[in-house]
Design a binder for these strands. Structure first.
Length: 156
DNA sequence: GCCAACGTTGGC
DNA sequence: GCCAACGTTGGC
């Protein structure tokens, strides 16, 4: 099992939205970056866990945990001209973009803020704090996962 | 809203 | 294949 960090803008789709879904499950679609796509398509597997990160909002940071319940399949939104994520160059015969299905696991009582993450001595290699910090899907090592998860559980 | 740090596009 | 111009992300 592998660990990941997925970013989303909570004003568009946050962990509360996932939690409120009937099956607490949702396709993670709209990834339109090749490096992130490659992680999604080639490495993210059912059973993997991910940190649900809130970006571009008041409380920037890790909001909770979800798990992958279905591995990569073609992202339907690329074929939909009505969608913001429509890609006219994508065809069903050769899809360009992929999505996975995720299910809610846990919402932290308090968002683990980016400031706190950056202040953690154990977190120096994570994409969030290094180059490529714009990547919307990034791997997390088991050590990083444990440190971050522990930090999220500590009250200030 | 600003701006740094990327990623993508397209002319040559 | 290079690289300038442009677009996007995302913290602040």
């Amino acid at each position: 099992m592998a660990y990941w960090l997925f970013k989303s803008e909570p004003d568009v789709f946050g962990i509360r939205h996932l939690r409120a879904r009937p099956e607490q499950t949702e396709p993670w679609d709209g990834v339109r970056n090749y490096q992130a796509r490659n992680f999604l398509r080639d490495e993210v597997s059912a059973g993997d866990k991910l940190f649900f990160y809130h970006s571009s909002c008041k409380q920037v940071g890790i909001a909770g945990v979800a798990e992958v319940v279905r591995a990569a399949y073609p992202d339907p939104s690329q074929f939909n001209p009505e969608s913001d994520y429509y890609d006219p160059k994508a065809t069903t015969a050769s899809p360009r973009w992929y999505c996975v299905d995720v299910r809610f696991c846990e919402q932290f009582k308090q968002v683990l803020s980016l400031a706190r993450i950056k202040a953690m001595p154990q977190i120096t290699e994570l994409g969030l704090v290094k180059k490529g910090h714009r990547l919307s899907v990034m791997p997390v090592t088991i050590d990083e996962w444990q440190h971050l998860y522990t930090a999220a559980g500590e009250t200030l």
